[in-house]
Nucleic acid binder design. Structure first.
Lengths: 218, 218
DNA sequence: TAGATTGTTAATCGATTAACAATC
DNA sequence: TAGATTGTTAATCGATTAACAATC
């Protein structure tokens, strides 16, 4: 309370739930005016219906007793709170296979992602095409970031190069970083860093597989 | 309690914390016999030291008052419980850019991942090389899965093809699926499915960026 | 020894769930 | 109207943190 935060500060778990609702409820957007009950969402998402109602109430979506929630309302409220309707302009640094995959994946556009430039430090790659984008040299970062009002950098560089790349994009002026490497990186307080821990997924699989065959020893 | 589970059933949050500890403590493995205190881990990972001690105690790692925990012990315990020392044999289905990136990323080997075959349904791709692997036709799935004792399938296919691919790998006999598509998929109870929700990361970024400039409207 | 750190029990906190009155 | 479903308050549950005695 003594901290200077004025926003309600949503927890990551809530954002995850909202995304989950969003994806399921999207499938229900068939006819205009279609509705969905908290029980139905809860069923699909495997959780208690009270929590669904509480989450939706927190977003300001009102339902109708005996009817449920208007599908379009639910979607609009989630889009609004998560900011999908505002462009999220980004640069991508490190055009390896993963970077190329992200740069050319069309599915992110529905969440507002707009990749304004792709960069690499390898002189051999500069000028090459990836999808409809030309790979640019790192030196052009500041111009693109400032010129296009880019807020975010997607980092898909080798682990050793992560901090160096982060420093460059921060200097260029981005305010958020989406890091796919597995090095933790240092950034000033006012830069939001989201680290995508893909290897945690692997650890999760590994653990569950081990649980499934508890009688073995190698 | 009335359910048939006999294992303690670790929560996902715990697995995540253990991975986090693992990555940090790894950096401390310089000299044999090096130690680390719960306070140091807590500092690095930004959490309470009591929780670190509780987690390590749950794994059976014992520390020494005034000294801390043996780094090698901590690492070994985490490796053991998460199953990193047992090979996790997998096939990868869908050799697009993302699939290629995963197949050729060497970093997963330290968690035991062993990709035994990469598959695609596109006849043009079959026979091509990705890293040191040849792309195989889907028809060969059962042979590879059974022949090599493959437990896991990594699915990096387009969304529309996800369920079809899942059905095929399940029929071939895998017991776990690591799904990178954003379609939820149906699988029998005895197949563990881990869905890697990358777009949730994007939603998280989008939300936090919106928080950072609460005074704008587009 | 004195003091830092562990290991563990008890207290707190927050998140989830249950209960139920309000409503259409 | 009767009944399903919302919205919300109260109860429960579990996870985190605080406290502190044990220990090297």
């Amino acid at each position: 309370m003594s901290e200077g935060k004025n926003q309600p500060e949503m927890k990551h778990a809530l954002i995850e739930r909202l995304m989950h609702y969003y994806q399921f409820v999207n499938d229900r957007l068939d006819t205009a005016g279609s509705t969905v009950t908290s029980g139905e969402i809860a069923e699909l998402v495997q959780m208690d219906d009270t929590l669904v109602r509480k989450d939706l109430a927190a977003l300001g979506v009102r339902g109708q007793p005996r009817v449920g929630f208007n599908v379009a309302d639910v979607l609009a409220a989630i889009r609004e709170v998560l900011g999908f309707d505002e462009a999220l302009r980004a640069v991508l640094v490190g055009v390896g296979q993963l970077g190329g995959a992200i740069a050319s994946y069309p599915g992110f556009a529905r969440y507002g992602l707009d990749i304004c430039g792709i960069f690499d430090s390898d002189p051999d790659k500069i000028g090459q095409l990836r999808g409809r984008q030309v790979i640019l040299p790192m030196g052009r970062l500041p111009i693109v970031v400032r010129g296009r009002g880019v807020s975010t950098a997607i980092l898909t560089v080798p682990s050793e190069a992560t901090q160096e790349a982060a420093d460059q994009v921060i200097r260029a002026g981005v305010k958020a970083i989406w890091n796919f490497g597995n090095m933790k990186l240092k950034a000033p307080e006012d830069v939001y860093v989201r680290h995508e821990h893909i290897s945690t997924g692997l650890a999760d699989l590994s653990y569950h597989l081990k649980q499934m065959k508890p009688d073995w020893h190698s």
